[in-house]
Simulated assay, not measured.
Amino acid sequence: MARHHLTIGMFTDTYLPQTNGVVSSLLASADALRRRGHRVIIVAPGLGEVDEAHPDVFYLRSASFPFYPEFRMAFPLPAKLVANLPRVPFNVIHAHSFFFIGCLGAYLARVRNVPLAYTYHTRFVDYAHYLPVHQRVTKTQAVWISREFCNHCDRVITPTTDVERLLRSYGVEKAIDIIPTGIDLATFAGDGEVPRTIAALQGHPILLSVGRIAKEKNLDFLADAFAHLVTRRPDARLVMVGDGPYRSELEQRCVSLGCRELVSFVGDLPQQQLGGYYSNADCFVFSSKTETQGLVLLEAMAHGLPAVAVDCAVTREVLRSAAGTLTDDDPHAFADAVELFLREAPAQREARRQAARTAATPYSSDALAVVLEQLYVDAAGSFAVAR
């Protein structure tokens, strides 16, 4: 049967130049779907002069969220763009958040009478501490809006079975499709180049952490584990790629632990520059327990970098076979696991690297785009029959 080319609207409240899992997921899906001949229009918050010029990326004016400056609050401006959006011939609309732009996408889906898909990327209850009100109230509200928004969509997508179970516990009744976020190795240009930070540490075992530096990422735990490790492996070094609202507190914790000189804080990097870090580190370390998938784990594995991660439902689902090790939520246990990694013979280490690459293979963005495309086609077909 001939494949129909679709016009897909992706509506998101977080976008470039921010670097996080939602942005990476959206870009990987959009690029893979475009390679398959579909038109993907992205509606996102704009930052003005730094916005990427792309004919199919529409920017709404935005301002920083008062209690979390990295998050942007969008407004229905420019008015001409908002007025013209209902005329865009979308075949399906895919919301990637349930804030203003996500809700705009949901509204347009009803106006255009097309199916609405929604990917639940974030455990919002774990972000309640950013609001200056009692967390019990905000967590209850996060559960309520998650349930209500999902139940008003035509298709709900989660990246793992753990998140599917979470939404069911919230009372989500709609059918849920489990489609992991894919990774596109073509975006990691310059894998053969050794970054200067890594080059300066040659001769030392290098642990790598990639991601937003935020309280909910459990990075105090990682600092504690690293401090334990260096009492036995004083030659070990930790490289942290990323930035965020908790960076100054984390740096101060490293100072208090006596390991600040052994930790390199690189800051945010575009995805194109991450390949050199993944390819030249010795072990990926991952302490977060609030992820919906843990995309950076997959990126590390795809580059042949084995990982040590805190055991939770999501890491258990992603980190399988000899690609890495799961540990208890205990800094001593985590440090022990990393030390065992660093003591492995070269042949065993190479076997782990190959196992990591193999485990990441099913997560190709092109392969998963086929699954997402079929979901869109099925949703559009069901919607047409229902009309």
Results as ranks from 00 to 15, higher is better:
51 D>Y: 03
356 A>R: 04
387 R>T: 14
10 M>K: 08
128 A>G: 01
288 S>T: 12
368 L>K: 12
130 Y>N: 05
195 P>F: 08
223 A>Q: 07
14 T>C: 03
352 R>Q: 12
245 P>Y: 03
356 A>K: 06
337 A>L: 11
232 R>F: 04
30 A>S: 11
234 P>E: 04
102 G>E: 03
74 A>V: 02
11 F>D: 00
63 A>C: 08
89 P>H: 09
119 T>V: 13
338 V>A: 03
252 Q>H: 14
101 I>W: 02
204 H>C: 11
367 A>M: 13
275 G>I: 06
243 D>Y: 03
297 L>C: 00
361 T>Y: 09
237 R>K: 12
139 K>M: 15
199 A>V: 10
160 T>M: 09
333 A>K: 11
183 I>A: 11
341 F>W: 10
255 V>M: 10
314 V>L: 05
48 G>S: 04
317 E>P: 07
188 F>M: 13
218 N>D: 13
136 R>K: 14
382 S>K: 11
188 F>P: 10
200 A>P: 01
315 T>I: 03
145 I>N: 07
274 L>A: 09
103 C>S: 07
382 S>A: 14
202 Q>G: 12
234 P>Y: 04
70 E>N: 06
124 F>A: 04
186 A>W: 06
123 R>Y: 07
73 M>E: 06
157 I>N: 12
245 P>C: 02
324 G>F: 08
266 V>P: 06
281 A>K: 03
116 L>W: 00
365 S>T: 03
290 T>F: 07
154 D>C: 04
314 V>P: 06
125 V>I: 07
206 I>K: 15
198 I>S: 09
176 I>K: 05
293 Q>H: 05
172 V>N: 04
129 H>F: 10
240 M>R: 05
384 A>H: 12
44 A>L: 10
14 T>V: 12
266 V>D: 04
140 T>A: 15
387 R>Y: 06
227 A>Q: 02
215 K>R: 14
111 V>N: 05
15 Y>W: 15
73 M>G: 00
259 C>I: 15
25 S>W: 00
144 W>P: 02
233 R>A: 09
311 D>C: 13
380 A>E: 12
